[in-house]
Amino acid sequence: MSSIKVVTNILKVNDELTQQNKKLMNEKGLYVINLMSSPGSGKTSILEKVIARLKDEVNIAVIEGDLYTTKDAERIEAHGVPVVQINTEGGCHLDGQMIRNALSHLNLDETNLLIIENVGNLICPASFELGEDLIITVLSTTEGNDKPQKYPRMFEKSGIIILNKVDLVPYTNFDKDEFHKDIREINPKAKVLETSCITGQGIDELCAWLKETISISNPV
């Protein structure tokens, strides 16, 4: 009988692939955003708004994660930016191998900003790093203000937390004070933005912030 001290991270393979992806993305001067949320919170709608505002100033490419469909990728493609669809066929998150495959389909030399829209899921994607520079997590007001407490990992890792569908607050029991208090406890460093894709609230601020961050990260 042999006893072996292993002490090795279970997600080592993903971590190694992610490190390789990160190296490649850094070499190409890409700023990479991992966009996460539950299904239906408005990730794709926010992305469409951001692309429409920034695409003339920033070369954007998108990786779309979805279980089976190409619906979101079609919406992004309509804005005239390069998009690669990853269908996980039931898988609940994107991982390093999937990103590596997707990167091979993009012209990285002509991209400044890569946005990865993860599979809609508030739990699993938070465990798999994709080599991103920034995590943006979206919560919509119709999901309820208790979600950051119930699913803290994603919120804890985020640089930006977006509260979307704020135009619907009067029709829900969403408690914004509670939400902001919980976020301050879980992740006091996160920038928090309130948006609505219907009224356009917060979109200018989000775009201005992204532009500034990208230019600081990749000075021309």
Binding site: M1, S2, N9, I10, L11
Partner: peptide
């Protein structure tokens, strides 16, 4: 509120015997 998480994120294989 200025707290550092010490433990709780572990996810690793510690030992094996065979």
């Amino acid at each position: 509120l200025d707290n550092q998480v010490l433990t709780g994120y572990e996810l690793y294989i510690d030992t094996m015997e065979g």
